[in-house]
Design a protein around this nucleic acid. Structure first.
Lengths: 168, 168
DNA sequence: ACATTGGTTCGTTTTTTGCCGAACCAAAAA
DNA sequence: TTTTTGGTTCGGCAAAAAACGAACCAATGT
């Protein structure tokens, strides 16, 4: 009886807490989705970010997300391959506990910003290709785009380099 | 006969040039796809960027892409709504000539970089949420991520502000 | 007035994405 | 040795995204 009541209270507490976290995971998940991920990976990353403890085993993740084993498995493996998630183990416990790999996360974010180079290259190539164009007015406008793009690109590059230097 | 030969030569020339441009459009298209666009919009933007003249009518675009009228129509309208494409007209010619709106393109690129704020906010919120966590080691690692994220975010913000100031 | 041009609209097809379930497997426990 | 645990793999399916085609329309040309 007492045990039952206690379990019930725990469940109620759990539930409200879980709901709160659920909401957070949901909204953070959407933000992550918008940076080009599918819903489930977004939710897993969100969950591992705000979960206390910050590591969870396979079935905890699956239970929280209410997703299938296969989905959780493949998604975790993708995230691990990407370096955003890793796992720890505890001796005498066969489970793997998945967690955010903050170093990998940082690298991924860094990598994103380095993408500035790609667009900068592209747009520079365009101007190179158009150098003998009859439409210098357009070229001049394009140059403005390239100027901005290089300006940002160089700035980001420098910032990252400085950061790396300071944190080595 | 002469006319025929000339047409043939033109066609051959055209073809090689078109192929060259085709390749470029294709690869630039992929880059643009990777920033979250579908293939056709990517190709249209690419085409208008490197085409000489830098404006093309509806049927030129359609013919070059070998896409359906409907696809071209809706895509052009989307791009115009986004501000990346606009059109010009010539008197005595009913056609619209579509072209890149460099100002709109610049704004779109700018907007992309401003997205840095979103991830920075999210990750800051995570730390706020975890402030009483038992896992200070993880929190410390997260702080590193946040530091980088804010650092880049502030840098980008400042760069854009400076750019806008200098180009007003 | 009729035909043509320069598109637009909308219902349909095609392709891709995201996720699931069931069967499967290796390591550990019983 | 058999069972259980902690996953993995693969075929399939439903929904969403992308592209299409045919019918349509307004403005211009004849």
């Amino acid at each position: 009886m007492f045990a039952c009541k206690s379990a019930k209270m725990a469940s109620v507490l759990m539930k409200s807490k879980t709901n709160h976290i659920s909401e957070k995971v949901e909204e953070m998940g959407i933000i992550i989705e918008q940076m080009g991920y599918a819903p489930v990976p977004g939710r897993i990353v969100s969950y591992l970010l705000i979960s206390e403890p910050p590591y969870r085993d396979f079935y905890e993740i699956q239970g929280f997300l209410k997703a299938s084993k296969s989905t959780v498995s493949t998604t975790l493996n993708q995230l691990m391959q990407q370096g955003v998630v890793s796992y720890i183990t505890f001796s005498g416990d066969r489970k793997r506990y998945f967690q955010i790999n903050t170093k990998g996360l940082l690298d991924t974010i860094k990598q994103q910003y380095k993408q500035a180079r790609v667009i900068n290259n592209m747009v520079s190539e365009v101007l190179e290709h158009r150098k003998n164009s009859e439409f210098q007015r357009f070229n001049k406008e394009l140059k403005e785009v390239i100027n901005f793009s290089s300006y940002i690109h160089n700035g980001i590059e420098k910032m990252i380099k400085d950061w790396d230097k300071a944190h080595r």
